[in-house]
Design a binder for these strands. Structure first.
Lengths: 162, 162
DNA sequence: TATTGTTATACTCTATAACTATA
DNA sequence: TATAGTTATAGAGTATAACAATA
């Protein structure tokens, strides 16, 4: 029931990104749900497994607020999939580590997600796939035009309490 | 502070889409804020201007829930930028039309957004740009793997009241 | 003085349900 | 019986502020 022409949609960069992001998250949710896992937990757990990272670093990589990270880690710890351990170099910070159970769940979930990504990108030619990923990477990393977490100076502000 | 390698990020399709979507929305919010407009209002208003569409159709095109559309249109009507008019073919439905004031605001905002899109895509080569947009369109439209609004059967359900 | 993680809380968006008026 | 839009409300996510411990 999308009444717009392909040309019109192609010009709507915001729609292309938002739709791709939302639809992929929905598909990830479906396949992860079969493993009793949700997208946010998987996202955080996989980034915790691939390197020693503090909560704050994990929050940035996972595109989550640090307060959301607190409840996510509470949940992952309660499920026995991850652990907060003190950082050896900064006693304020906590390194998030996956447990053995977490690694086991991740091995399964990671395979399912890789399969999903392959299926999604499979409708493109190899050339298209390469250029798409390179272009997105260019936009999103380093000094790319979509790399910053720029705060909106006109966003509605909350009142100060005092 | 993204501690991941480019190769790792390139394999994280979800991150690429989410980050592009969020960062573009943030940049749109910044430039639209200077015109006292927000992303959601612009998104809905521009889609209302480009064709005769009902609230439900607008909600789908704008990737918004129909209940969010109600409050968005309440706001746009109060601001004098859009109007709900009865559909001639279905007396339950309402066609959303832009007012003259709405068209004037849109002309300005549309130019600003087009400029932003051009700036963002400007870091890519013409060839990259073409392939990127074609690939996203392929994924997101028609029977593409990211076209559906598939409900997650494992999502936490709300209790029935009775 | 600034930062990490925590808690509390407010705001926004989404999702569900129930309702009406139509189809 | 089903659908468009409305209303009410619950739930999730984000954002702000204040705090303790530490840098």
């Amino acid at each position: 029931m999308d009444t717009r022409s392909d040309e019109e949609i192609r010009r709507d960069l915001s729609y292309l990104f938002d739709k791709a992001s939302q639809a992929l998250a929905a598909r990830m949710g479906t396949v992860l749900g079969e493993l009793d896992m949700n997208v946010r937990d998987f996202c955080v757990l996989s980034k915790a497994a691939s390197g020693e990272r503090t909560q704050g670093e994990l929050a940035e990589l996972s595109l989550l607020d640090k307060t959301t990270m607190v409840v996510t880690l509470d949940h992952l710890e309660k499920a026995g999939l991850a652990q907060r351990t003190p950082s050896p170099v900064d006693r304020r910070a906590r390194i998030v580590r996956t447990t053995e159970a977490g690694d086991a769940v991740l091995a399964e979930a990671g395979g399912v997600i890789d399969g999903l990504y392959a299926e999604v990108l499979g409708v493109l030619s190899g050339e298209q796939r390469t250029v798409l990923l390179d272009a997105l990477l260019r936009l999103v990393t380093h000094d790319g035009p979509l790399s910053a977490v720029e705060p909106n100076p006109h966003a509605p502000r909350r009142k100060r309490s005092s």
